[in-house]
Design a binder for these strands. Structure first.
Length: 275
DNA sequence: AATTCGCCCTGTCGGC
DNA sequence: TGCCGACAGGGCGAAT
């Protein structure tokens, strides 16, 4: 599942390739992946415009055009593949194709079709409701202001649920949530109101560390995630708990437990993350 | 008001 | 071998 580090990696790798390219057309094979503007109207709207910038916000990647903007969300299994080759188009999982002048194209491949594309006429994508409701960028926050203004000290919800909430912090999904909680020594079901100031400071420090490391490793290719050239990231080799239920904890040797918390598969170490 | 639940969607996997 | 249910889960809208 493409989370913040995967989307950021895609943005960084894609930007040099698509910057200043002129859009020739768009083909939508799965209309339900388009939000807002009718699929058949998008082509006429964006054709002829150059891509001026690529920006990431949370798990969204935004293509700024000369007049408008395109917001992508990769859902669970979405990939953005940049290729000058014709053959990939025949892949049945390629849902949307954006072609550029010069015979190059961007493929939006997404087997499970949870991905979305939004065309924002006028280009003011920051005002789109989906973007508006996002919480701060985890890599931008500082413990001081965050502790003061953003943390719900009285909430009874689990810390796992809160970390997954995009209106609290944007960009964290199930993988980095479980990894962060493990390294923080926090049980995923701990309720938010039981965390001390020190717990929060530690948590904020660690979530940044986890995300930065994953970016450095070009993302976690646990299942579907690929870089724009189709190759794998390497952060899956560094995972401590995600996908390791039933195996031994690297830190203490205890058997990692897998349960369901906040309606998500959750792996944790009963020793390192004692309630 | 805060939180949880059901749904969308399809490939993969384990069990029989 | 093949069928079938369970599972994966981000985010929205409905329900509690």
């Amino acid at each position: 599942m493409p989370e913040l580090p995967e989307v950021e990696t895609i943005r960084r790798l894609l930007a040099p390739d698509v910057a200043n390219l002129t859009i020739a057309g768009i083909r939508v094979r799965r209309p339900q992946m388009v939000i807002g503007l009718k699929p058949r109207l998008i082509a006429g709207t964006i054709s002829g415009q150059k891509i001026t910038d690529l920006i990431r916000r949370g798990k969204y990647i935004v293509f700024e055009l000369e007049k408008d903007a395109l917001i992508f969300h990769l859902g669970m299994t979405g990939q953005l593949l940049f290729s000058s080759q014709w053959q990939n188009r025949s892949d049945k999982h390629v849902r949307i194709i954006i072609s550029f002048t010069g015979n190059r194209q961007l493929l939006f491949k997404d087997p499970r079709t949870f991905g979305k594309i939004i065309c924002v006429p006028g280009g003011d994508w920051r005002s789109h409701p989906r973007i508006q409701k996002l919480g701060p960028e985890p890599l931008d926050i500082t413990p001081g202001t965050f502790l003061k203004h953003y943390i719900p000290h009285s909430s009874h919800r689990s810390i796992k649920s809160l970390l997954l909430d995009q209106s609290f912090l944007s960009g964290i999904g199930n993988i980095y949530c479980d990894e962060t909680l493990f390294l923080s020594g926090l049980h995923p079901a701990r309720t938010v109101d039981t965390l001390s100031q020190q717990d929060w400071r530690n948590l904020i420090r660690i979530v940044k560390k986890v995300l930065q490391k994953a970016i450095k490793n070009l993302g976690t290719s646990f299942s579907d995630y690929r870089k724009p050239d189709g190759s794998l990231g390497s952060n899956q080799e560094q995972l401590q708990v995600y996908g390791r239920g039933g195996k031994e904890c690297y830190a203490c040797g205890a058997v990692l437990l897998k349960t369901s918390i906040a309606q998500r598969g959750t792996v944790y170490c009963p020793e390192c993350q004692a309630a």
